[in-house]
């Protein structure tokens, strides 16, 4: 088991390889379709994303009477929808990686290689375990996009992920697809 602790550094990312199980502690920002689309069409992100992590997640957030927030469910959403935009965010804003589920395609893989990023796979559907690892909701940006689409600034502790695309050009998704396809041809 490896660890990734805040403040994150680009050097940490280099050591992460496909198949590594990692516990993340520190900050992450949620961002899914609407956020990526808005950035893609030219709006600057409202926060400095240098050395930060974007989490593909539409959390369920409770707002308490005192104005504080609580995340009650926070599983990953399917990442492939951000495939057209993700590499640009890697290029322009210096993130160290993204968390999601289902993996991403060749554009993102190349982005990871060119800009030193990783794709981290959270466990799809594990809403309760993941929500438990979120220790606080520190801020929210672009709330006009609607609660699940807004940028939520979260502090997490021991947030479990598996590296499935690394900064060295390896993709577990590509690998497993090829192996299983070969195996399938044998078994048909």
């Amino acid at each position: 088991m490896k660890r990734l602790d805040y403040p994150f550094k680009k050097e940490d990312v280099k050591d992460l390889k496909v198949g590594d199980m990692v516990l993340i502690s520190g900050k992450m920002y949620t961002g899914r379709d609407a956020v990526h689309h808005r950035i893609h069409t030219g709006t600057k992100p409202p926060i400095d994303l240098t050395n930060q992590i974007i989490y593909h997640c539409g959390p369920v957030v409770l707002e308490h009477k005192d104005g504080s927030f609580e995340v009650t469910a926070a599983g990953p959403t399917t990442s492939i929808r951000e495939e057209p935009y993700q590499w640009e965010v890697m290029r322009d804003y210096g993130i160290i990686g993204v968390i999601g589920k289902g993996g991403m395609g060749p554009k993102t893989l190349k982005g990871c290689q060119d800009y030193g990023c990783v794709y981290m796979h959270a466990i799809g559907g594990a809403a309760q375990v993941l929500a438990e690892r979120i220790k606080s909701v520190d801020n929210v940006y672009w709330r006009d996009l609607g609660s699940p689409e807004a940028i939520w600034e979260l502090t997490v502790e021991d947030f479990p992920v598996v590296i499935t695309m690394d900064s060295h050009g390896n993709s577990l998704h590509k690998e497993i697809d090829e192996i299983s396809n070969k195996k399938l041809q044998e078994l048909l």
């Binding site: 959390p59 469910a73 559907g125 594990a126 809403a127 309760q128 375990v129 438990e132 479990p160 598996v162």
Partner: peptide, 22 residues
């Protein structure tokens, strides 16, 4: 690792009476 987290999630959802998946 994935199956352990899934298993933990199932148990946690039951005790907290919260949705297994969002």
């Amino acid at each position: 690792y994935a199956m352990q987290i899934i298993d933990k999630n199932i148990k946690l959802a039951e005790t907290k009476s919260q949705p297994i998946c969002q």
